[in-house]
């Protein structure tokens, strides 16, 4: 593991203006190492999703800076930011966000197209347990299968960072564990840095680093010495 792969300094972000202005992030400092599994934990409104979006280059901070692999995000123009997302990031959402008119295979190919050395789609379909569903449309799949497909789309290009925003938020207990296991496997097998936003306290146990946020500030930043495999998590 190399330190400071992702360095976040004094990030501030607010929404609205005047009296209705709300400061969502109040100076976040965080360093994440390459290949690290980091969980951002916190209640609703704590600013964890906003932080994730800023790391993902979807949103810009009001101040502070993020350095990814030695590059300052603030210096990146629109096109460069797109390139950053294209080359380095994989995104997994709570509501999957699959493209409804594409099959499972094609949804994964949407991600594969962006990578310079993408993983084999067939192999990945097998790994994800979706091989026999590859010709189906997203609405013919269960929630868990859709999320697996979304994970496939995110990791097929073998990104440096995998951003997961409440990936189990819409899933039942068993399916959630299945998905968490998959993310854990991906992290271990491909060595991607994983940043996962969740409000499920139990998930913190499978992470290398746990960052607890409340009211836009980091309340705790802990290195987890004894990780629990996703399989063994209970909530």
């Amino acid at each position: 593991m190399r330190e400071d792969f992702l360095a976040i300094h004094e990030i501030r972000k607010s929404f609205g203006a005047g009296d209705s202005k709300v400061e969502v992030l109040k100076g976040i400092d965080l360093d994440i190492a390459q290949g690290e599994f980091c969980v951002l934990l916190g209640p609703s409104g704590s600013g964890k999703s906003t932080l994730l979006n800023i790391i993902g280059g979807i949103d810009r901070p009001d101040s502070g800076e993020i350095i990814v692999n030695g590059e300052r995000m603030a210096d990146m123009k629109e096109k460069k930011l797109t390139q950053y997302r294209r080359k380095h990031l994989g995104y997994i959402f709570q509501m999957y966000n699959l493209i409804p008119n594409l099959t499972v295979r094609e949804n994964i190919e949407v991600g594969a197209y962006l990578g310079d050395n993408p993983l084999s789609v067939d192999e990945l379909l097998g790994t994800l347990g979706l091989y026999e569903h590859q010709k189906k449309l997203p609405n013919q799949l269960s929630g868990g299968q859709q999320q697996r497909c979304a994970i496939g789309r995110a990791i097929v290009k073998n990104p440096d960072i995998l951003l997961c925003d409440e990936p189990t938020g819409a899933l039942d207990y068993n399916t959630s564990k299945e998905i968490l296991k998959l993310i854990e496997t991906v992290n271990q097998k491909y060595g991607n840095t994983v940043i996962m936003v969740t409000h499920n306290d139990a998930i913190k146990d499978m992470a290398d680093r746990v960052v607890k946020l409340r009211d836009g500030m980091i309340r705790k930043n802990i290195i987890n010495e004894t990780k629990t495999p996703a399989d063994a998590l209970e909530w």
């Binding site: 409804p100 594409l102 190919e109 594969a112 197209y113 449309l137």
Partner: peptide
């Protein structure tokens, strides 16, 4: 929409072309 099945498209067709065909369908 749940009942709709995807029309099979040969995986050898370039990805962009398949995507465009799906948009048309």
């Amino acid at each position: 929409k749940r009942k709709h099945k995807a029309l099979p498209l040969n995986a050898h067709i370039p990805f962009f072309t398949r995507f465009q065909l799906r948009v048309i369908m």
